[in-house]
Nucleic acid binder design. Structure first.
Lengths: 233, 233
DNA sequence: ACATCGGTTCGGTCCTTGCCGAAACTTTTG
DNA sequence: CAAAAGTTTCGGCAAGGACCGAACCGATGT
């Protein structure tokens, strides 16, 4: 058991592979060459990394024509990465570079985190929903109130998949919150977070910036977030 | 950011260090030589590993006389390890050795997992409490019912610290459940799990087996678990 | 059919790092 | 004050593995 533990951790512990994993953290599938580019290594090297990672079960691969698309094998991998990030972003104090870089700034503003929204945007949305009593956030769980359910339906979000979860008292328990590594505060993850994220993309409120997990808030998005959530970015 | 991510993961990804971390997973503090023994390396080698691990913030060290005691720096590290184990125990199918070893068997029967009970015992307790409607376990949260609160008070468990958490409807949301890597089913973690674990130790229901995280259920424990929880081990 | 492109396999180099023994340092014990 | 125990530092060795260039393979497109 402890061998396999070490194997998994070591796989994630090599800088090149770590960058590949991070590039896949938004749940999309990338090709081998794209991953080689993000890791800054040659295609042969990347290929070796990828085959090991697939064999170990961290990644899935699907061949499509002459491309091979790699993606995280499931949410458990993303959760593991978040848990590592949580430790990594802890205090070991006054270490090197805080932030820097425009790319980093974009990521801190808004990004996807596997299947939900993160960064300043994700935290702001969580705060807004909390303030309006649409959700309650505890350290361990996240509850959607009746009012919240109405609210989501009103803004055009399909709440049907959320019904499947456990009902308790007057609210629905949806998921654990997810600690945002850049903001150090919880944002909405789980079923609700995923629904909110996909809806925001479909409605054109946010748009993926090519090549990163960063998101851009569109004009329509600014308006929608302001009117529906009372957010000003 | 991704550098530090890789640093942390790599630290956990070396077999010797991984074994040390596992030995510390029950939250106790061990000396450098003890850790050298569990990792199967010489004291100098272990010392090197430990100093790196401490500098990275995974472990805390406290000097006491001529001993230096190392322990996990906090719950975040334990949670990270559990997340890695979750991935590690996933399907990458039909791999090598399942189980084996009497030491391993003891661990599978009952052990501590940072601050709560795990293994067959942990899962059985979770099942028993669920069956009696004392807790409700969902995928994402764990709710203590009023009946459960009464029950715990009746068996002498101090429920005061549990009161601090969020109240919702008729139950208390305590924590996320924790997937047991040997049983592949959820057991009780979080505040309730910790309380139940420490109470079981204090009441003499279980006893730590020296040198491992494994636990032994005492005669008194067998009786208590049977009478209070309806468990037969 | 041929050229091109994405990807993997092979062979070989180089660097990292895990490892130990010897020795030094510190604190406890006799 | 000397001896012993716990731990760290130093020096050197050896193995693992990350890397690249070249060659190879299969799919696509002309």
């Amino acid at each position: 058991m402890t061998n396999r533990f070490a194997e998994i951790a070591a796989l994630a512990g090599e800088p090149g592979r770590a960058q590949m994993l991070h590039a896949l953290l938004d749940g999309r599938a990338l090709t081998a060459n794209e991953l080689a580019a993000v890791a800054g290594v040659s295609p042969p090297t990347a290929s070796g990394h990828l085959s090991r990672t697939v064999k170990a079960g961290l990644l899935d691969v699907v061949a499509q024509g002459r491309h091979r698309y790699f993606r995280l094998s499931g949410p458990a991998v993303a959760e593991m990465m978040e848990a590592i990030m949580k430790v990594a972003s802890a205090q070991p104090q006054a270490k090197a570079s805080l932030t820097v870089g425009p790319k980093d700034r974009a990521l801190r503003r808004a990004r996807t985190c596997y299947d939900h929204l993160a960064g300043a945007l994700g935290v702001a949305l969580a705060d807004a929903l909390t303030a309006a009593d649409h959700v309650e956030l505890t350290e361990e769980a996240e509850i959607l109130t009746e009012a919240g359910l109405d609210f989501l339906a009103r803004i055009g979000l399909d709440v049907a998949p959320l019904q499947a979860r456990q009902t308790r008292g007057s609210g629905r328990i949806l998921c654990r919150p997810c600690l945002d590594w850049s903001e150090r505060r919880p944002h909405l993850a789980g079923a609700l977070g995923a629904a909110l994220c996909s809806h925001s993309l479909e409605a054109g409120w946010v748009r993926r910036l090519s090549g990163t997990r960063a998101l851009e808030v569109t004009r329509a998005g600014e308006r929608a977030f302001k009117e529906s959530f009372g957010l000003r970015l």
